[in-house]
């Protein structure tokens, strides 16, 4: 059952004409992540590189392609976690970086801290020699249009966000039995400057523990935070639920308790995986035993050989 990587490109509404481009991106990312794992690479390397690929793809709301805040600027959040030691790294409200997930990993590996925010995160990026990119290079025409549309007085950013692609993320189990998760996002469209969502919060944007499993989340960030969705899923799994059952129970609870929509990718220490969502769509892909699974609509599970 080892190794396995499962990725998502965000839960929400996907226009029919964007089905193909949305699934193509996650399939490509899952293939690359799987190749790392097959050659003996670590789960940590696999999730970070998989998420970096999705950050570089303008189709998704992370890195290039990020949604804009109320001022029309890009502020990004990211999280990575290593299930072996529970080490984790996160950045919040960071600007002018191509790959926030790489900076999150550096926070984990080069500092005694877990999370750096805003200007402090940028200062650390400069100290690490990471080049700043022009803000324009992160902004797509699509993001600018979303931002403009949401300036109408009757616009509802939460509803709008669920109507578009969210957050990207990945979970992986390597041949050594180590688990990891990574999540990255541009956040909710027209968010207030400095808004931090679920993504960089440990136990909200993701969680990884070799003893339990790994989870990466997407969807309405504030709802995910209120119920600490990944932590909840892993507690259910600790009590004997399968990744699929645990995910469905936790997503149902999120809907019942805080009316939240979202999706998750999950893998347990044996390699049993799940990609579940209660939004209309979520683009996802999973690679295991030289098979690629993928889908975008509820209940869909297409396969092709790797």
């Amino acid at each position: 059952m080892l190794p396995v990587v499962v990725v998502h490109g965000g839960a929400g509404y996907v226009l029919k004409q964007r089905f193909e481009v949305s699934t193509a991106g996650v399939k490509e990312a899952a293939r690359k992540g799987y190749a790392i794992l097959k050659s003996g690479g670590s789960a940590l390397d696999a999730v970070v590189e998989t998420v970096a690929i999705l950050e570089n793809n303008p189709t998704y709301n992370a890195g290039r392609g990020s949604m804009l805040n109320a001022k029309g600027e890009v502020e990004m959040d990211a999280l990575v976690m290593d299930g072996r030691t529970l080490a984790c790294g996160a950045v919040s409200a960071v600007r002018r970086l191509a790959n926030p997930i790489h900076l999150a990993r550096l926070v984990m590996e080069k500092t005694s801290h877990v999370c750096l925010t805003a200007e402090g995160a940028s200062k650390f990026a400069r100290a690490m020699g990471i080049p700043e990119v022009p803000e324009e290079s992160l902004i797509t025409d699509h993001a600018r249009k979303c931002w403009k549309d949401n300036q109408c007085p009757d616009a509802n950013p939460v509803q709008y966000q669920m109507g578009k692609m969210g957050t990207v993320g990945a979970v992986a189990l390597d041949v050594h039995g180590n688990l990891a998760c990574a999540t990255s996002t541009g956040g909710i469209v027209n968010k207030m400057e400095g808004r931090v969502g679920d993504t960089p919060c440990i136990g909200c944007g993701g969680y990884a523990d070799n003893k339990l499993g790994a989870v990466s989340t997407t969807g309405h960030g504030e709802a995910i935070m209120k119920i600490t969705l990944p932590r909840l899923i892993l507690f259910y799994m600790e009590q004997g639920k399968s990744p699929e059952e645990a995910s469905d129970m936790a997503l149902a609870y999120m809907m019942e308790r805080v009316s939240g929509l979202g999706g998750v990718v999950v893998v347990d220490p044996k390699g049993t995986w799940a990609a579940r969502f209660n939004s209309k769509y979520m683009s996802w892909a999973a690679a295991q035993q030289d098979q690629l699974h993928y889908g975008v609509s509820l209940g869909e599970d297409l396969t092709e050989p790797l």
Binding site: A93, T117, A118, G120, K191, G194, R195, V196, G197, E222
Partner: peptide
């Protein structure tokens, strides 16, 4: 929102 950071 739930969380605001830094200058924001």
């Amino acid at each position: 929102h739930i969380m605001l950071t830094g200058r924001g």
